[in-house]
Simulated assay, not measured.
Amino acid sequence: MPSAPTPGPYDVHRPPRADGRTFMVTGGNAGIGYFVAEQLAASGATVWMSSRDAGRGEAAAESIRTRVPGARVSHFRLDLADLSSLKASVEALGADRLDAVVYNAGVALDDPPRRETKDGHELMFGTNHLGHFALTRWLAPLLRAAPAARVVTVGSFAAKSERLDLDDPESTEDYRPKRTYGRSKLAQTHFGFELDRRVRASGGTLLSVVAHPGGALDGLTPARPRVHVTTGGERLRALPAGLLLQGKEAGARPVVRAVLDPEVRGGELYGPRVFGLRGLPRPEPVKGHFADAAVAARLWEISSAMAGVSPDLGLL
């Protein structure tokens, strides 16, 4: 009897099919999240995309349907800045399992003043990190119901140059918006790797993977009329940056590979090939402060207390 064919290298233009599987993308109505949802929908999967704004969410879903014939894509309302609302949002889906969730949604502020979530947490740390941390607790039953679920956390190149201050994780003492954003993405990155460590220690089958888009600019991003329109001037101004950076459609590819590639392993990091800024997705070494398990473990305990959820998140 002939043996099964050996899978070839991952091809971004012909990624593996995912018919019959269900994926969730937080913040799927715009930016990187939109293109992640679009590419996953093209794989044949059912895709749930979250947004706080129902109108923008439906516009994004309709955009995907016009580009992907037969796309099974829906939006649902999710507000990561309101921790008390997350359980009800998940229950309203009526889903019985989830094969992968992409933690993409996020807030990025450029200027003071410091802002807070409904729960009193600094807005970027509270939304980008704590919101996803708490959401995992309510998604746990759906992830456990899948035979080999994945949690893919979207990091950022900005996290590479930051360090956490675990004595002041919410920047109450010295608030600088760009630094606080980078730290919130670093916290997400630590979450992704620490979740992998804890799952492996418990003998679980879930895979936790981190991916980042590199340098993704609006001016290099193809237009999606219902979601994103780039003017001619913006495209021209962005052309020189195309030597080192890329658009958000390309920036979504490391994330999509982390979801779809059967060769992906828990605890891996995926990013663009060229200096981590542009190009085809590939695994990157996890080193330096990204590999600091002691910081990640302490952050986990702090986050559990802040988010008001048990440290096992219902998964371990």
Rank of each mutant, 00 (worst) to 15 (best):
L269D: 01
E284G: 00
A305F: 00
R298F: 05
R257M: 08
A293G: 13
H289K: 15
L260M: 03
W300E: 02
A305Q: 14
S303A: 14
E301R: 14
V264L: 02
G267N: 01
R273T: 14
E268F: 04
V256D: 01
V286Y: 06
G271R: 08
P283K: 10
G266Y: 08
H289Y: 10
M306E: 08
A294D: 08
P283N: 11
W300T: 04
A258G: 04
V255R: 14
R298N: 07
L269Y: 10
G279D: 08
I302Q: 15
V259F: 09
R278E: 03
H289I: 03
L269F: 12
E263A: 15
P285D: 10
G271L: 14
P272S: 14
R278I: 10
S304M: 00
R265S: 07
F290C: 05
V295C: 12
A305M: 01
D292Y: 10
E268K: 08
P281I: 09
L277Q: 15
D261V: 05
V255E: 05
V286I: 08
M306I: 12
L277M: 15
V286N: 02
L260I: 08
A294L: 09
A258L: 03
G271D: 13
V274Q: 12
L277G: 07
L280V: 13
M306N: 13
L280Q: 10
G276A: 09
E268V: 03
A296T: 04
H289T: 13
A297V: 01
V286A: 02
V295W: 01
Y270E: 03
F275P: 00
